[in-house]
Design a protein around this nucleic acid. Structure first.
Lengths: 235, 235
DNA sequence: ACCTGAACACCGTTCAAGT
DNA sequence: ACCTGAACACCGTTCAAGT
């Protein structure tokens, strides 16, 4: 209360001007999520950052799930529009899909919480945006209309799988105070010590796991699926 | 307190015999998760079901995350072993992979919470089991050793993506009191009303979404990836 | 119309005290 | 060795009361 006493200064500096807006709340949520992860986003921390009470937020936002979806949507909207800047009408759809997928990967890498937020926003706007952008390229690829759903689903599920993994990796790494590469090294070490009778394959994979590059491997998976899409059915 | 008064009856019926065991706790957790979803698993509900206090559980289990992983592992262990019963040495690896993948789908369909539990148990035993079983088939497929990691990752990420989606679908459907098919119909209706200028593709997908069959489409995605695996690289 | 902040009904987890 | 259950430090959400 004391620090609010100097409110005579018309409308200059760090005091909130006019009223709280949905955009302000979402932007503050993103900052909070980026700096302290999913569990760092609480209505109390958020209202403190916005210099207001917990109840005030409920005037603009329905509930926490709504808040998370909105924050996620803000990131996805930026992510889906950015890579299209370098795309011309001559760009092959495969290239555009790779660009979109990589943009998703980088966004989730920068904001791990987006990964799990996406999972919980299935019919919602973030997902619609992604489906739209990827779908248009699948269409341009000449995939028959009947297979649109299955093809987009396959790409989307793969991307969501990676997203979820990255989100979990990020959170685990944060919890244990490790960088992600160190965390993977730790897992690799555990796997290399698995019982060779029971888990021969997982054990043999430990070395590749230690050396791998998340981003490159993600793209390799996209390429694998793209190959599957353009490969004839056998049935 | 009153209902425990008749404890003279030696050791016959519904009273706990001997002491609480980790297995009992995990089994009760699975029942709770199946009947009331992820948010239904609380230490209070669990301890009530086990006729004990919340603190007692901590003697056998480290924390909630440990509990969820253990419950998930119990389901995955059953899931990965069952389909192998019908596999002989002559079964082509593709067929076995399809069987394993379908077993995963069905398990997650029956226990939606497994989907999100898997995401949070990355280096842990449930994941090791899955990697081991799928990996052995990838190896049998003749995939070069250098590509083991990427190939298994692609399959796994796809499966995890579907798993996460199913988990979220199940939870949403539960929250809104809908069966899953009704929930998809509702989403499809929303999508069919999207702005055709902004979201032409997503809009055109609504019909396919309404008609689709989760399980069949899941398998179609696996087949698509399998085609990609056996299709030559272009580099 | 928008905000305040106390209050409600929960959580996971701990820990002295019991047996 | 194992269990009890009160207590702690949190949550999301609501709502009368304010401006």
């Amino acid at each position: 209360m004391v620090q609010n006493a100097r409110s005579k200064k018309t409308s200059s500096s760090q005091r909130r001007e006019e009223s709280l807006s949905r955009e302000q709340i979402i932007e503050a949520s993103i900052e909070l999520l980026d700096s302290s992860g999913e569990e760092g986003l609480t209505f109390r921390a958020l209202s403190e950052r916005l210099a207001t009470g917990p109840g005030a937020i409920y005037w603009h936002i329905a509930n926490k799930s709504d808040l998370l979806t909105a924050a996620c949507d803000a990131i996805i909207a930026r992510t889906m529009n950015a890579p299209l800047a370098s795309v011309t009408s001559g760009t092959p759809p495969q290239t555009t899909i790779r660009l979109l997928a990589l943009a998703m990967f980088d966004a989730i890498d920068a904001h791990p919480w987006v990964g799990s937020a996406l999972t919980h926003a299935l019919g919602k706007s973030p997902m619609v945006r992604i489906v739209e952008h990827i779908g248009q390229q699948v269409q341009a690829l000449g995939v028959p209309k009947k297979e649109h759903w299955i093809t987009v689903s396959a790409l989307l599920n793969y991307i969501l799988g990676v997203a979820g993994r990255n989100a979990a990796n990020g959170q685990l790494a944060r919890t244990q105070g490790l960088v992600r590469s160190d965390f993977l090294k730790a897992v690799s070490t555990v796997w290399s010590q698995l019982d060779p009778k029971e888990y021969p394959f997982a054990r043999s994979l430990a070395a590749q796991m230690r050396a791998h590059d998340d981003r490159k491997d993600f793209l390799a998976g996209i390429d694998l699926i793209l190959r599957g899409i353009s490969s004839p059915r056998r049935t």
